[in-house]
């Protein structure tokens, strides 16, 4: 498990179940009148195929850095009091959470906007991949739709 927490941001890659209550408690602040929480979970059915679990693999040190880079960008765009990105690695059974993105701001519009930005960019930039395990034993890597943006010089 790789964890990093300050009083303003919390980034976590974990093989254990994600703790929604701990995320909510982290996001609570007297200045925050709006908290947006997005939780991505393992879905049982996709286009008629039944998933038994998803297995997540990450390039962990870089994934951690990319999650921080996304928070850096979000914090320059929106007045964020606290934010967290927690991602699970390893096996995630149906209904359990694979990712949790939370943002606390003074008012709700920027909480929703920043939360949407973080989960949408995470799905393009953060080097984590999922493998679906279907009933009857079939296993497939899920390949993303677009390549990450190159930002380094």
């Amino acid at each position: 498990m790789v964890a990093e927490k300050s009083n303003k941001r919390w980034v976590l890659l974990s093989k254990a179940r994600l703790d929604v209550t701990a995320a909510y408690q982290f996001l609570q602040a007297p200045t925050a009148g709006g908290i947006a929480l997005f939780i991505g979970t393992t879905r049982q059915w996709t286009d008629g195929h039944e998933t038994t679990l998803l297995m997540y693999e990450g390039y962990e040190p870089m994934a951690q850095k990319e999650m921080h880079r996304l928070l850096d960008v979000a914090m320059t765009r929106w007045p964020i009091h606290r934010a967290c990105i927690l991602h699970r690695l390893g096996e995630v059974p149906v209904t359990e959470a694979s990712v949790l993105v939370g943002v606390a701001t003074a008012h709700r519009p920027e909480a929703f906007e920043a939360c949407r930005f973080l989960i949408d960019r995470l799905k393009v930039q953060v080097p984590i991949w999922k493998q679906e395990h279907l009933t009857h034993g079939q296993v497939n890597w899920i390949e993303g739709n677009e390549p990450p943006e190159t930002t380094a010089t």
Binding site: G40, Y56, G58, Y59, M62, A63, H87, S98, V99, I119, L122, K123, V124, Q125, V126, P127, I128, W129, K130, W141, I142, E143, G144, N145, E146, P147, P148
Partner: peptide, 10 residues
């Protein structure tokens, strides 16, 4: 160095 194919986290 690491090769990164389109990611599928989340």
């Amino acid at each position: 160095l690491a090769l990164i194919t389109p990611v599928s986290g989340g």
